[in-house]
């Protein structure tokens, strides 16, 4: 990797230019780097009336690196504002010089150039890791039952996240297929009927992405039965663990101490006082909804 290959190097050209001379035109086909050695250059936009000076260059300044290394268009004309001396590094010159440097230095230059390009590209893209999670998170905050014009909704979401509209529309269809949103009408409108389902879906997708099992879909048959029983139990019923196990037993649900520990871990009970526990109705509703909509969540409709 030290690659100190010696090849013929094409030297840069040095020129003296008079004030007013156009050193580099924005429509020049040839890409080059201009280094100002003496005098002053100005980057001007002649398409505007009056023409606009974007910046001036002082000795030691250079332009054209992005045009040469990153193939970016050069948008201005470069004119000498007074008699100046310049060094022009043409594409051939640059290439020959790059061939003569060690490979690691070439890699460094490429890395610097690539970082700039990647950063610019990244600024144009959505930063969300999963477009469906991102859209679901957005939709869960929409007003329940309110019809939103699809186009405006997509536009608003794209503005917030920089997602691209066609992809968002596909994701909306995916949510609609799962019955989490409704899309209807000639001028389509989107309606969220149950925002809680979108909350579940976000959690489900997050678990999937992390390759972790999602607790609501990991329950045993008895735990499911216990969940259903709890959903119809008064939420102010507060008792200690043995009494709860006896309660389930009485309802023909055979649970073990391990089941009790698991249910506690899942947050189905809140410690109301001392050793007493009461059902957490919100948590129970969450798990119950997950069971009821398992097929929708998995997307196997």
């Amino acid at each position: 990797m030290n690659g100190n290959s010696r090849q013929q190097v094409i030297p840069p050209t040095h020129s003296s230019v008079k004030a007013g001379f156009v050193v580099y035109s924005h429509d020049d086909q040839e890409r080059k780097i201009i280094i100002l050695d003496k005098g002053e250059l100005a980057a001007v936009d002649n398409s505007l009336t009056p023409r606009k000076v974007h910046f001036t260059m002082q000795p030691g300044d250079l332009v054209g690196v992005a045009a040469l290394l990153e193939r970016e268009p050069f948008r201005y004309d470069l004119e000498a504002t007074r008699d100046s001396e310049i060094t022009v590094v043409s594409e051939d010159c640059m290439e020959s010089e790059l061939k003569s440097i060690p490979l690691w230095l070439l890699a460094v230059i490429r890395e610097l150039s690539a970082r700039n390009r990647q950063r610019k590209e990244a600024l144009r893209r959505s930063r969300a890791a999963n477009s469906l999670v991102s859209l679901s998170e957005f939709c869960r905050h929409l007003k329940k039952g309110e019809p939103y014009p699809l186009e405006s909704l997509v536009q608003e979401f794209c503005w917030q996240t920089k997602a691209c509209a066609p992809e968002v529309k596909e994701d909306l269809k995916a949510l609609s297929r799962r019955k989490f949103v409704e899309i209807a009408g000639m001028d389509p409108v989107v309606t969220v009927t149950q925002p809680e389902l979108l909350e579940l879906f976000v959690d489900y997708l997050e678990s999937e992405a992390q390759e972790k099992p999602w607790p609501p879909l990991q329950l045993t048959l008895n735990q499911k039965k216990a969940l259903v029983r709890l959903s119809i139990t008064e939420s102010d019923l507060s008792q200690d663990p043995p009494a709860w196990l006896a309660f389930f037993q009485k309802n023909n649900i055979a649970l073990t101490a391990a089941d009790w520990i698991k249910m506690q871990g899942l947050g189905w009970f809140i410690n109301s006082k001392g050793d007493l526990f009461a059902p957490d109705s919100k948590k129970i509703e969450y798990f119950l909804l997950a069971l009821r909509y398992e097929i929708n969540l998995r997307g196997v409709l």
Binding site: P12, I33, I35, G60, L62, V65, L69, T87, V89, E97, I101, V108, I109, L112, S113, N116
Partner: peptide, 9 residues
Amino acid sequence: WLRSIIEFL
């Protein structure tokens, strides 16, 4: 100029 280009980048 090679140093200038690297510094510019």
